[in-house]
Amino acid sequence: MSSSRSGNLYAEFSRIVTKDLLKSLLEGLDAMVPSLLEAYKAAVASGRRLAMSGVLQCLQKEDTNQNRRTAALLGLPIFFAEDSSNVIRMCDAHGETLDVILKGMQVGLLIGHEGPLLDSFPLEVFNVAVVVEEKIILHDLRDVPTGFAMLMGAIYYLNLEYPRNMKYSFEFLQKVIMTIKPDQCSARIHGLRNKLLRYHL
């Protein structure tokens, strides 16, 4: 997807929901990151989501604002016990060919990193791409949060459904993080939002 097409994506998203695509995701995310990370820690401590510990350990290695955002986003499907394998994939610059990596991806993100992946998510990302129907439609995005914003924009722009395997994660992004139709949450998302608000108190 060219820069002009990504501009169209921005414009169409703004027309549909009257919000700035990247700003609404980043501002909403930054407001929720502390509470989300607390919820993740509590889930690990209770033994319910041990897989989340790897995400939290990445922050112990390098606790930057960008990595906190990335941990919050990539932790969502783990928190909801969803299978993100066909939606979010990591790609070593010198690993498998793109055809192999993209197989089975109907809509999602490809996160490019240098060298073998030793952590739950790469601390050094060099490229993030948006994938639709096993094809890269937008690439050279600078980081994972921007990738998620553009993925949400592409879903709106192309009038796609959210991936079924990650429906709660995407509903949370839409209704809690980006506050698009926030009063139409499912019971599960409504419950998590209330729990996160309690962490704020």
Score class of each variant (00 low, 15 high):
Asn67Arg: 00
Asp183Phe: 06
Leu50Trp: 03
Phe170Trp: 08
Ser46Phe: 04
Met52Ile: 03
Val87Met: 10
Asn86Gly: 10
Ile101Tyr: 00
Val176Ile: 11
Glu133Gln: 09
Ile155Lys: 02
Ser84His: 08
Ala71Phe: 11
Leu160Val: 03
Arg188Pro: 05
Ile155Met: 04
Leu109Met: 08
Leu118Gln: 07
Leu29Tyr: 08
Tyr10Gln: 14
Ala154Arg: 00
Gln66Ile: 15
Leu117Thr: 07
Arg188Thr: 06
Ser120Gln: 06
Cys58Pro: 01
Leu173Asp: 02
Pro182Ile: 13
Pro122Val: 12
Gly104His: 13
Val131Met: 00
Glu38Tyr: 02
Arg49His: 07
Ala81Glu: 10
Glu133Leu: 06
Val44Tyr: 10
Leu59Val: 08
Arg188Met: 02
Gly54Ala: 11
Lys195Leu: 15
Met105Thr: 15
Gln60Phe: 00
Ser53Lys: 11
Gly147Ala: 00
Lys175Glu: 05
Thr146Leu: 00
Ile177Phe: 02
Leu201His: 14
His200Pro: 00
Ile177Lys: 00
Ile101Trp: 04
Val131Asn: 04
Asn127Gly: 02
Ile189His: 05
Thr179Phe: 03
Met32Pro: 03
Ile180Asn: 08
Gln174Glu: 12
Leu197Thr: 15
Gly112Tyr: 11
Lys103Gln: 14
Leu22Glu: 09
Asn194Asp: 13
Ser4Val: 14
Glu124Ala: 14
Glu171His: 03
Thr146Ser: 06
Pro77Asn: 10
Gly147His: 06
Leu98Glu: 13
Met178Phe: 02
Pro145Cys: 03
Ile189Lys: 02
Asp119Ser: 05
Arg68Ala: 02
Cys58Trp: 02
Ala42Thr: 14
Ser84Pro: 05
Glu62Thr: 02
Gln60Ala: 08
Met178Glu: 01
Arg48Asp: 11
Gly95Asn: 04
Ser4Gln: 12
Asn165Met: 09
Ala81Cys: 09
Phe170Gln: 01
Glu82Phe: 13
Cys185Met: 09
Lys61Leu: 14
Lys195Asn: 12
Met166Ile: 00
Gly147Phe: 08
Lys19Ile: 01
Ala11Phe: 11
Lys61Ile: 12
Leu201Arg: 13
Leu25Lys: 00
Arg48Asn: 08
Tyr199Asn: 12
Ser53Glu: 15
Gly147Ile: 01
Leu118Ile: 01
Phe170Arg: 08
Ser84Gly: 04
Val144His: 06
Ile137Glu: 10
Phe121Glu: 04
Met105Phe: 13
Gly191Leu: 09
Leu37Gly: 03
Arg198Val: 15
Pro182Asp: 09
Pro34Arg: 05
Phe80Gln: 06
Ala129Glu: 08
Ile177Ser: 00
Leu160Met: 14
Tyr157Met: 03
Met1Pro: 12
Gly7Thr: 07
Arg164Phe: 11
